[in-house]
Simulated assay, not measured.
Amino acid sequence: MLATFLIGLREGLEAALVVGILVAYLTRLGRRDVLPRLWAGVGLAVGLALAIGAVLTFGAYSLTFQAQEILGGTLSLVAVGMVTWMIFWMQRTARTMKKTLEGGIDRALAQGSMWALVVLGFVSVAREGVESALLLWSMVESFGDAPAALTGAVLGIAVSVAAGYFIAKGALRLNLRVFFTWTGAFLVIVAAGVLAYAIHDLQEAAVLPGPFTAGAPVDPVTGAVAVGWAGFPFGWAFDLSGVIAPGSAIAVILQAIVGFMPQMTWLQVIAWVLYVAIVGTSYLRGVRGPERAARPAPAVAPASVPPSPHMRDALVSSASTEGAR
C-alpha cells in the first residue's frame, strides 16, 4: 500500500494542480460558462484511465502462459518508459506549466469550438491517468496482492484531490518543488523495480535468456541453475529465499520500495543498476541545475589597471608641484 499510495498521491496531485490552474484561469477570465466543457474532458480522461486499469487487472485473457508473460513484460516496459519521460518532462516544464496551460485556454477560447476545451481537459489529465494505470497494474502484478495495492492507490488519489482543492483555495501551503523533487527520485527507484520485474517476465517467456531456458548455466554438483558469479550472465545473481521468504512482509516492502526480490537473475540486477545509474544521475543533474542558476553570482572586484607611462608622468609631475607648494 505504501508504494501505490505514494504513486497515487504524486500522479493525482500533478493532475489536480493542472486542473486547478485551468479552472482558476477560466474563473479569472469570467468564463465560468465553459467550465462544464473542461470538466467533461477531465471526466473522459479519468474514465479512460479506469477502463485501462480495469481491463488489465480484471480482464479475462485466453492466452498461454508464455503470451501472458510477454504481454506483462511488454506493458511493464511501456510503463517504465512513460514514467521516465514524465519525470524529466515535469522537471523541465514545471516552471512554465502555468503559462503553457493558460496559453492553451486562450487558443481554445479563440477557436470558439465546444470541443476545443473538452480536448484540452482530456489531454491535460489523460497522460497522468494512463501512466498511473500502467504503472499500478505492473506493481499489482509483481506484488500479487491486488486489493491492498489498489487500496493504497485509491487513498493516494483521494488525498491528492483533497490537497489540490485546499491548495487552490489557499488553505494549504505545500512546497511543490521539494515535493516533486523527492517523489521524482522515488519514482526513479520504483521504475527500476518495474523494469527488473519486466525482465523477469520476459525471461520466463523465453524472450530473453535466463534461468528458465536451456542455455542457463548449471551447477555441476547440484544440477540446478548456478547462483552467483558461476551463474553469470544468464543464471541467478543471488538467491536469498532461505533467509527472506518471498511472500513475507519484508520481502513485499523491499520489492515495493526498491524493486528487490529474494531471488533475482543477473539480467534483472544489471538492468536495475544501469537504470538507476543512468536515469538517477541525469535526474540529479536536472535538480542541481536550477539550484545553481538561482544562486546569486559572487561579487567580483574591479581589476586594477596599471597606469600608462603618460599617466604615470602626469602623476609624478603633479606630486612634485604639490611638494614645491
Rank of each mutant, 00 (worst) to 15 (best):
P296S: 14
A191G: 09
Q111Y: 14
P309G: 10
V159F: 12
L254W: 07
G12E: 01
L120E: 08
V80L: 09
I189L: 12
G20Q: 05
L176A: 09
G259T: 02
S248R: 15
M114W: 11
V300C: 08
D313H: 13
D33P: 02
A54H: 02
I244E: 04
T57F: 11
W89Q: 13
T96P: 03
A294H: 01
I7K: 04
A110C: 00
M82C: 09
V123E: 03
R285L: 13
V276H: 03
L195P: 03
E204F: 04
I270H: 03
W39P: 01
D201C: 10
G12L: 01
L6I: 10
L240T: 13
E141I: 07
V279N: 01
R292N: 07
S113R: 09
M90C: 08
L274M: 11
G231P: 11
F260L: 03
V269W: 14
G156S: 03
V287N: 01
F5Y: 07
M114Q: 14
V243F: 13
M1T: 12
Q66F: 09
A163I: 00
V78G: 07
A158M: 13
A94T: 11
V23D: 00
A185W: 10
L202V: 04
A153N: 01
D145S: 11
A205S: 00
L38K: 07
E102Y: 00
A206E: 08
A67M: 02
P298D: 06
R292I: 01
A251M: 04
P302L: 05
L17S: 05
A198C: 05
S241V: 14
I7M: 11
P307T: 14
A251C: 05
V46S: 07
V178R: 15
G72W: 05
L135T: 13
R37Q: 08
I253R: 14
V252F: 13
P147Q: 14
V46H: 02
S142G: 15
R10I: 09
V194N: 05
A294M: 02
F5P: 01
T27D: 01
G156P: 01
I244F: 15
V316Q: 15
R95M: 08
A293H: 03
G12K: 00
A256Y: 09
A319M: 07
A51C: 13
A162G: 08
M139N: 12
F238P: 00
W272V: 04
S113C: 07
G223M: 02
V154Y: 06
G73Q: 12
G215R: 14
F232D: 10
Q268W: 11
S318E: 11
A24N: 09
A245Y: 15
G59I: 12
S248H: 15
Y61I: 03
F238Q: 07
G235N: 08
R127F: 08
L13R: 09
E131M: 15
L109S: 08
A224E: 15
D145T: 09
W89K: 12
T151E: 04
A126I: 05
M261R: 15
P246Y: 10
V123F: 11
A249T: 15
S241D: 10
L48F: 04
F180V: 05
L134N: 12
L136P: 12
A110V: 04
V178D: 04
V18S: 02
I87H: 04
A191D: 11
L38Y: 07
A191V: 08
